[in-house]
């Protein structure tokens, strides 16, 4: 990698993962996103920036929220935005993936946001397409734009990331959001505390630099941020968690458990929420503590920053 004086602010063709990004690259994306927050709030747009560029949202998994956020980000920068939802019911999904890559190359797309149920699918696609690929969530691997929008939300509220205690709670094992957040926050000098039942914490996760707790009281101690994760319904029926009520009793966030954290601790959730399972409505809707709505706003700004940054790279012909 070029580390000389001409070093780029962001030295990659794609955004496939937070892991491997330099702190300066993360800071660059956050700073640029910050400027888009101001632009968006002023009601202005920057429709010249990506004029003539094409963004394709390629979603192999349903996600209204993330897809809409990318769509809005692209449109605010003047890109032509196409949404492609690919049925995942076909037997051989992998063939579809590479066939789709060939189709996209023929379409001369510049930017590609990919959501896929399989870890590593965006990396595979990135090897085969000319466009810059943004991982919009792959399996249990990473969800880099979510971590960036979480970091931007935290930084705007707390003024920094360094030295903050961030507790991430719930189903860490199946969470790409957790993994991207661990990489980002530890890279930026934050302290990550993971809280959940042992069977929802993946093997060796502490080697990523996070501390592990199995009860909310010790896990939330000194926390500046309490980040709740979604627990998939199908995991609460006896396979991994005996019942939703048992999970809520021990790991659901209510006012009582929130009191274990710092008095000014903020509550976050990547959405969509299971109210009454991992989070109580009173906490989720508390304007003093919850920044869940703000996360959505930051999502658009962060995705604008990512699209802007990646669009500056050349398109490869494949």
């Amino acid at each position: 990698m070029n580390r000389g004086p001409t070093k780029l602010a962001y030295a990659h063709r794609h955004l496939l993962a937070i892991e491997g990004l330099e702190p300066a690259e993360i800071a660059h994306l956050l700073d640029l996103a910050e400027s888009y927050v101001l632009l968006n709030r002023s009601g202005q747009t920057a429709r010249d920036l990506l004029r003539g560029k094409t963004l394709i949202n390629l979603f192999f998994e349903d996600s209204t929220r993330t897809r809409t956020s990318f769509e809005l980000a692209g449109k605010r920068l003047g890109a032509d935005v196409i949404n492609m939802s690919v049925a995942t019911s076909s037997v051989n999904k992998g063939e579809t993936l590479l066939d789709t890559a060939a189709t996209l190359n023929a379409m001369q797309c510049d930017l590609l946001a990919v959501r896929h149920a399989q870890s590593g699918a965006p990396s595979l696609l990135a090897q085969k397409v000319g466009a810059a690929v943004i991982n919009a969530g792959d399996g249990m691997h990473e969800h880099p734009t979510q971590a960036l929008l979480d970091a931007l939300t935290i930084r705007r509220r707390k003024g920094r990331l360094e030295g903050l205690n961030v507790a991430i709670c719930g189903d860490i094992a199946h969470s790409r959001v957790a993994r991207s957040n661990i990489h980002l926050l530890t890279a930026m000098g934050g302290h990550v505390r993971l809280v959940g039942p042992p069977n929802l914490l993946p093997a060796g996760i502490e080697e990523l630099g996070a501390a592990v707790f199995h009860d909310m009281k010790s896990g939330l101690a000194e926390a500046d941020i309490v980040m709740m994760l979604r627990l998939q319904r199908e995991r609460m029926t006896g396979g991994e968690v005996p019942s939703a009520r048992e999970f809520f009793r021990f790991f659901g966030l209510d006012s009582e458990k929130l009191a274990y954290a710092r008095p000014d601790a903020l509550v976050m959730h990547p959405g969509p929420m299971n109210r009454g399972v991992e989070i109580e409505s009173r906490v989720a809707d508390d304007p003093e503590r919850s920044v869940i709505g703000e996360q959505v706003e930051m999502g658009v700004a962060v995705r604008m920053a990512v699209l802007d940054t990646l669009a500056r790279g050349p398109r490869r012909n494949i």
């Binding site: 892991e19 870890s119 590593g120 792959d138 399996g139 249990m140 691997h141 990473e142 790409r176 993994r179 993946p202 093997a203 060796g204 996760i205 080697e207 990523l208």
Partner: peptide
Amino acid sequence: EGPLATRLGL
């Protein structure tokens, strides 16, 4: 199973 699989989300 271990840190590598966890990192890769496998």
